[in-house]
Design a protein around this nucleic acid. Structure first.
Lengths: 218, 218
DNA sequence: ACCTGAACACCGTTCAAGT
DNA sequence: ACCTGAACACCGTTCAAGT
């Protein structure tokens, strides 16, 4: 109805910045130069404004990270719950979740402590998982612990992807650690990426075990 | 044999600082004021020296965190592997490991990326676990992924203990998330701490599943 | 060899001043 | 309402100078 907001004469002087532009720019900066490049000053520069201008729109860097988190969360695939049986859906969802945050490791400490009410999309995801678990006859009181346990494993596994490939190199300690040194060599012989191999084994174990012990029929 | 290091006349002028004193002071500072208080300047002040003096002994703050990590790792109880059957030993070890690092969450990103050869005590712990897994007839190539999967879950769970108790408060989103809101209420009704409940359920599932699928007899 | 004090290149954040 | 520029209180780290 109303033609425009009440405004004095002259150029409208529209704002350069808003949440969307700031968040997208931040994500772009991160994807190119990594999280160590995400400083308020550098972000401001890439937006062509002074660093202090950002504080007209975001109250702190912590807040900015929450905006990014909210955006990144949309990349996690929850559609599998509509078409796959529960076990398979959980496995595919968890894999997607872990792959996404492997690219955003510095966000993990942020999410882990962020109240869900501050992140509608995360809450939405939880609702979807909770609904599937309930339909699958998981005991009511087991639903939240099942989600939290899976998420802890997902976050830990995402962080593990940052480990250097030779993290288990035992070097001159070989003699003192024969079993572990051998085990490292045996895993390496499979040709599988250690993080991926570990995640998959753990995920299958976790999903199977959580559904079994949380079931109403046990 | 030799009485003393060759030295010019006068007072021996022994060093005030060394790795042990620095590390213990840092740990004390952290236990009193938390990790946000652990800055090189504050640490130096509590040691009665200038911040620059620290750099005669430690090459970076990252290095200092590794020293602390090495010390904290000694608090993890690995003695259970000597007296308990494998499943029970893994559960008790993991519980100890998680409880220790729940007090040292900022160290987790450090450990996750630290080559084991830089941390003899961690390597020692791995050897102990690997030895037990091998003795229990776990397939050779499954040993490392089993340890890594457990560790990822442990680190993720340690981080989760930092979550505020009302992290799942759904507030004004209740209508849109009926299943999750109900699940939160049901878990709360058990009276169990959510992090502890989740950790225990996940740990049992993980240990049982990993030992089953990694066994030579499967 | 080991410590001090000053300095450097950054951080995140605040605030008076402009439009 | 929204932006600039200067400033503040910190960081980790370096380095010439002293003993």
């Amino acid at each position: 109805m109303s033609e425009a907001a009440p405004r004095r004469a002259g150029r409208p002087r529209k704002a350069i910045l808003d949440r969307e532009r700031i968040t997208l720019h931040a994500l772009e900066l991160v994807s190119v130069d990594g999280y160590e490049a995400l400083t308020m000053q550098r972000l401001a520069k890439s937006l062509g404004v002074a660093a202090s201008a950002l504080y007209n729109h975001v109250s702190s860097k912590q807040d900015l990270l929450q905006w990014i988190q909210e955006l990144v969360m949309t990349e996690v695939d929850t559609s599998v719950f509509d078409r796959e049986p529960l076990s398979e859906a959980l496995i595919q969802w968890a894999t997607s979740y872990r792959d996404v945050f492997a690219q955003h490791i510095p966000l993990i400490p942020v999410i882990a402590v962020l109240p869900v009410s501050d992140s509608p999309r995360t809450l939405n995801m939880y609702e979807r998982v909770a609904q599937s678990l309930r339909t699958a006859e998981l005991r009511d009181e087991a639903i939240v612990p099942t989600i939290v346990a899976l998420e802890s494993f997902i976050f830990g596994s995402a962080m593990d992807t940052a480990a250097p490939h030779d993290i288990f190199e035992t070097r001159n300690h070989k003699d003192a650690t024969p079993n572990f040194t051998q085990a490292v060599s045996d895993q390496r012989a499979t040709g599988l990426n250690t993080s991926d191999d570990s995640f998959q084994r753990g995920l299958y174990a976790l999903v199977a075990g959580l559904l079994a012990t949380g079931s109403k029929n046990e």
